[in-house]
């Protein structure tokens, strides 16, 4: 296991380095002046002073400077919000997105997996069709539609939750639920397919011949294997959920990380663009490594191969 872990981490670091370089190239080639923050024209000496201060005179030195800072964990200042450093911005926003994301994934697993299993075991019955319909809705409806709908229903009419914003526990369920819907749908689908696939296997027949009851067969024998593709999917899905969805955050007014991805790009704020991208890449790599490790632990065939 250890050599595999080391290898994965190494390649993960290489991936992050490539992503950093690509992003940097995009940032410096995109037209626009990162120092122009309002529509007024900035006096040239002011712009020059900022360039010197942020070490942006020379692209190569900025590249190295930012990278060495990033490795030490210091992402430098934000250009748009000059009173804040990228570290502060990310450390304010990330826990919020992470919380919503984790809760969304948990909801997705808790609802999606049983739905998929039921759909598979009660194939071609009303349960199956119902589950598939739910899946279709979850995947097709965009989050701003479902989010706004849930907001109007639960916050405005029923008044069970506050209308967006952040700060207390009551602000957590609605955005998490909205975010979880597409993941739930996808997990249900994956589980269903995996279960259908496994239930036709020979060893299921062996288990039946041994006298195991249906429940044991479904959950002990079939599910453990059918869950493996879901596990693979959960890696990138968790990373994606944890770094915030721009749409969900916009609808519910949650100060998460998703908006910073988009706003940083729109504002052409190099420090923030690169730091958010690095955070997301690191998270994605970490999640993928974690999932690989879990997968190897869950499936003994992989451990042997590795």
């Amino acid at each position: 296991m250890m050599p595999m872990l080391v290898r994965r981490l190494f390649w993960g670091a290489v991936t992050i380095a490539c992503i950093y370089t690509l992003t940097f190239l995009m940032v410096i080639t995109v037209p626009g002046n990162p120092f122009r923050q309002s529509e007024r024209n900035m006096p040239p000496e002011a712009e020059r002073a900022l360039r010197v201060r942020y070490n942006m005179d020379d692209n190569w030195s900025y590249f190295v400077e930012f990278l060495s800072g990033a490795v030490r964990g210091d992402f430098g200042p934000s250009f748009t919000y000059s009173d804040w450093t990228c570290n502060q911005i990310i450390s304010e926003a990330f826990p919020i997105s992470a919380m919503i994301g984790l809760l969304a994934i948990l909801i997705a697993i808790v609802i999606g997996v049983p739905t998929g299993v039921i759909a598979a075991t009660k194939r071609d019955t009303a349960w199956d069709f119902g589950a598939l319909a739910l899946v279709l809705v979850g995947i097709s409806l965009p989050t701003f539609v479902t989010g706004t709908f849930l907001l109007i229903l639960f916050a405005v009419h029923l008044q069970w939750a506050p209308i967006g914003g952040w700060g207390t526990l009551a602000h957590l369920p609605l955005p998490a639920l909205t975010l979880s819907l597409p993941f739930t749908a996808y997990i249900a689908r994956l589980t269903r397919v995996g279960m259908l696939d496994v239930m036709g296997s020979d060893f299921i027949r062996t288990a039946r011949a041994k006298g195991c009851d249906e429940r044991t067969i479904v959950w002990k024998h079939a599910f453990k294997i059918a869950f493996l593709p879901v596990l693979s999917y959960l890696g990138p899905a968790t990373a994606q959920a944890m770094t915030g969805s721009f749409v969900v955050e916009k609808v519910f007014g949650v100060p998460g990380l998703g908006q910073h991805f988009v706003n940083a790009a729109l504002n052409l704020d190099p420090g923030l663009i690169m730091s958010t991208v690095l955070v997301f890449s690191a998270l994605l790599v970490a999640m993928n490594v974690a999932v690989d490790v879990l997968y190897a632990w869950a499936d003994p065939r992989i451990t042997a191969a590795v």
Binding site: Q37, T80, Y81, S82, D83, P95, I96, A98, M99, L102, L103, L106, G167, T168, L169, H171, L172
Partner: peptide
């Protein structure tokens, strides 16, 4: 993880300010 992160969340809202107003893009600089 979730439990750890929940420590960030306040369980009750702080007392409401006398005047509350909204801003759409936040403060750029003070």
């Amino acid at each position: 993880l979730l439990a750890a992160l929940l420590g960030y969340v306040r369980w009750e809202a702080p007392p409401r300010a006398d005047l509350r107003y909204a801003n759409s893009s936040g403060i750029h600089t003070l």
